[in-house]
Amino acid sequence: MPKKQQSIPDDDPDLAALLTTLDEFLRSRELPVGELLIEFFAVHGSTRPASDAYTLVDNLSFTAHRYRRQATESPQD
């Protein structure tokens, strides 16, 4: 059974923009963000720090996309 999608919370209309900004930052090639995220996971005990870092970035990207899509589909007051 597919999971029911949650709609964007009414009290946080800028969530799609925030997630998009974070996604762009984490995927930045100008800064060593990816390497630092891998190091973060390693320091915090991850047995697969690179995989965990890339999975986090991908999940954020998919979530940002979903919220952007919902924001464009939702009627604005």
Rank of each mutant, 00 (worst) to 15 (best):
S7C: 00
Y67E: 05
D12R: 15
P2F: 08
R48F: 04
S74D: 11
D10R: 13
R29H: 03
L19N: 01
D58K: 14
K3L: 13
F40H: 13
S46P: 06
P32N: 07
V57P: 02
K4P: 02
V33I: 15
S74T: 15
Y67K: 03
R69K: 14
T55L: 10
Q6M: 10
I38D: 04
R27K: 14
F41C: 02
D23T: 15
D58L: 12
A71S: 12
Q6D: 11
D58V: 02
E35W: 04
E39S: 10
E73K: 09
L36F: 07
D12M: 11
T20Q: 09
A71F: 06
H44T: 13
A71D: 06
Q70C: 00
L26H: 13
R48A: 11
A17E: 13
K3I: 10
R27L: 08
A50H: 08
G45W: 11
E30R: 13
F40M: 04
V57H: 03
D52R: 07
D12E: 09
D12I: 13
A53Y: 09
H44F: 14
A50M: 08
E24N: 13
E39G: 01
A42N: 05
Q5A: 12
P49I: 09
L60Q: 02
A64T: 02
R27F: 00
G34R: 15
N59T: 12
L60Y: 02
H44N: 15
E73P: 01
Q5H: 06
S51H: 11
T21N: 10
D23M: 08
H65R: 14
D52E: 14
F25K: 08
Y67H: 10
H65A: 12
F62T: 07
Q76K: 15
R29C: 00
V57D: 02
L36H: 12
G45L: 10
S7L: 09
E73R: 13
D77Y: 04
N59E: 14
K3S: 08
G34M: 12
T20M: 03
P32K: 09
P49F: 07
H44R: 13
S46E: 07
K3E: 12
L19W: 05
E24I: 02
L37I: 14
A64I: 06
A42I: 03
H65F: 08
Q5E: 15
D52G: 01
G34C: 01
S61Y: 04
L37H: 09
S7D: 15
Q5M: 04
Q5R: 13
L15K: 11
L56F: 15
D58G: 05
T63K: 12
K3R: 13
G45V: 08
L26M: 15
K3A: 12
A50P: 00
S46F: 11
D58C: 02
L31T: 03
T21R: 14
F41H: 04
S28H: 03
